[in-house]
Amino acid sequence: MSRCAPVLCTAVLLGALLTGCVSTVNGTALPAQGGGPVTTTVPTLAEADLDRILLSAGEVNGVMDATGIRVTASAQSMSDNSDGVSDVDCLGAIYGAEELVYDSSGWTAVRDEVLQEPTTDNAHWVEQIAVLYPSAAQAEKFVDQSKTTWQKCGGTSIDIDNSDVHSTWKIDKADVSGDILTQGSNQRNAGGWGCQHALTSASNLVVEAWACSNSISDEAKTLASEMLTNAAKK
């Protein structure tokens, strides 16, 4: 079996947060790296913009310091893996693009891609998700609610059962100090395999990213940041 994230320990793709200052005209202002002055804004987006927000395979390889990563699955809908987790209240901390997590939040469209080396012993696994909302307020509200879930689930262990696959993941304490929420997790008895989960919003967009390897650090945060940069290029 190929190595993956807690959300995808089978070959099945999950179907398918920066709290920014909202502009009533031009979108959400993004701070420069290091907290410097604002350098650009994310405009109000439409569904047609979502595909270009996702990073190319080449860009993902650059972030992950790899060469063979490519898109292996994609979706334009949410998924439902709630039956496969030991604590459904932590579903949003262990899975991305989950129907139950996004339900009633007002989302209107989603793009979800999984990228990895197309081998059974892949060294990297990435998921990038872009979710559209009617308004910036709704996108920001989803991030705020997710922050509460991530904080509550930090320090716990979650069992995942998908088909004939069982795994246990230790969820780290969430880092909610910056504009992009991040949280690490490690798979038990998997030789150091771990993931970082990142979540942020800008304008009417929510961006979610997973990055997994045997030596993960801030790759998911970088992926989410670069997706926001793409969003600002409209």
Rank of each mutant, 00 (worst) to 15 (best):
K233H: 12
E117P: 00
G154N: 05
A139K: 04
L115T: 00
L91D: 08
V22C: 10
E59Y: 02
L223G: 05
G27R: 08
T44K: 09
T149W: 00
A139D: 04
C4V: 08
E113D: 00
Y95F: 05
S213R: 04
A231H: 04
V207Y: 07
E99R: 12
E127G: 06
R188W: 15
K152D: 09
I94M: 07
A198M: 12
V71W: 06
S203Q: 15
A66I: 07
G106L: 04
V206G: 06
V22I: 11
F142P: 04
A97L: 07
D164P: 10
G106C: 01
L115Q: 06
S177C: 08
S77C: 12
T120I: 03
G184V: 09
T119Y: 07
K170M: 13
A11H: 04
W150R: 00
V12M: 07
A137P: 00
A48Y: 08
I160K: 04
S2N: 10
Y102S: 02
A73Y: 01
C9A: 03
E226R: 13
L115R: 07
G194E: 15
G15W: 01
P6Q: 04
V63M: 07
G96Q: 11
G184Y: 13
I180Y: 06
P43L: 09
C153N: 13
N230W: 08
E140N: 11
A174K: 14
D179S: 14
T200L: 15
G27N: 08
A139E: 04
A224F: 13
T108Q: 13
I171Q: 06
T24Y: 08
L54E: 02
L14F: 11
A209G: 05
A48M: 10
S77Q: 15
A66N: 10
Q145D: 03
I180Q: 11
V131D: 00
K233I: 10
D87Q: 11
R3W: 11
L54M: 04
N162H: 03
L100V: 13
V42I: 13
S135K: 10
P6Y: 01
L199W: 00
V165H: 11
V7D: 01
P37L: 05
I53E: 02
D112Q: 11
D172T: 14
I180W: 11
V25C: 00
A202P: 14
V88G: 02
D161P: 06
A32V: 06
P6I: 01
G68Y: 05
V110E: 00
L205I: 09
V114N: 07
V143H: 07
S135R: 13
A211I: 09
A211Y: 10
I69E: 05
T182M: 08
Y133A: 05
I171E: 04
V101Y: 06
T168A: 10
D164Q: 14
D164F: 12
D218R: 07
T168K: 03
